[in-house]
Write a protein that binds this DNA or RNA. Sequence first.
DNA 1: GTCTATAGGTGGATAGAC
DNA 2: GTCTATCCACCTATAGAC
Lengths: 194, 194
Amino acid sequence: MAARLAADTAEQILDAAERRAQTVGYHGFSYADVAGELSLTTASVHYHFPAKADLGARLIERYTSRFLEALADIEARASAASDRLRAYVQIYEDVVAANRMCLCGMLASEYETLPVAMRERLGDFFAKNEAWVTALLTAGRASGELSYAGDPKATASALVSALEGAMLVAKAHGGLASFKAAAQVMLGNLIGPR
Amino acid sequence: MAARLAADTAEQILDAAERRAQTVGYHGFSYADVAGELSLTTASVHYHFPAKADLGARLIERYTSRFLEALADIEARASAASDRLRAYVQIYEDVVAANRMCLCGMLASEYETLPVAMRERLGDFFAKNEAWVTALLTAGRASGELSYAGDPKATASALVSALEGAMLVAKAHGGLASFKAAAQVMLGNLIGPR
DNA sequence: GTCTATAGGTGGATAGAC
DNA sequence: GTCTATCCACCTATAGAC
């Protein structure tokens, strides 16, 4: 317990590696980068994560479980489907505002060069993410709060993809303002005019 | 002239580098990879492109001009806004079907680690791409062929982002089928029920 | 225009002392 | 758990012969 208060070295390594992976990608940072930030040597980092693939896999696992926690928080805080949807989009916007990108979106771009263990966990993240959105869209349409044509699953997939893409493009063109504008369009397609 | 028939070495290098950049990214391939594919040495590749940044910049320039050519082709082939929009989306689908990703979407994920010359050309690609879509959406709504609420520019930005994101996510989860489903949702939001 | 050879740097990873 | 020292593979890039 109290894990977030006195973070052990392994956790600090994950924090540093995660921030880097979200900005320059898995292949964009080295053990030396992480070690330097924590005033350690690369050998010490290897003690906690023998191979970089171990570090990468753990990174995705932790990110996924925290992401699912955030989704559970939304359900606890908001009851209206439209409010939940807005809160969901806000998660992404906060990441962009922090000059990062979704860890899993970033890693998806490196998919072909990723260790198998990381690939599997990546697929898991998107599956669970889309499943949650699908349930939200299904319930939201049933209650008349949300409106869209067609399959909830396809619509959820399109929303997740669109948000990931908006983060991606914002890096090269438009930045946060561009992300916000795109996000508003997506919300408008589901919530409709107010 | 006849440049596409008897491709010179520089062009062949660009072809090989482009395919790799679209799958494993700019930092994911080396001069040795490209040289090996063409049965050359790295020194020969350096003769044509002294630094990798030169190769990368040329890659984006060529990709952008070919992309704009494809857009001009759409205007020549189709007159209805909905047909043009479908043809535009089809460009992206063809790339996914070839197990590639948009070169510029891929490079956007590496933005922070890219040479300045490449960053500038990346922004140029997205600006011109979005400008074309904005014009299409504007004309399409004016003629009653397309329908959407809000700013054409924001809607165009959202569409480009969504397509890039669908390519990205498809790599890690769902593949071509996932891309197609997401693309249909996006088209449906602009063209409406048939 | 292409080659051989090589420099100089950085990457992940390990052995063994403390 | 952390260190020093080191290995080996790979990468970008260059000099100079052909």
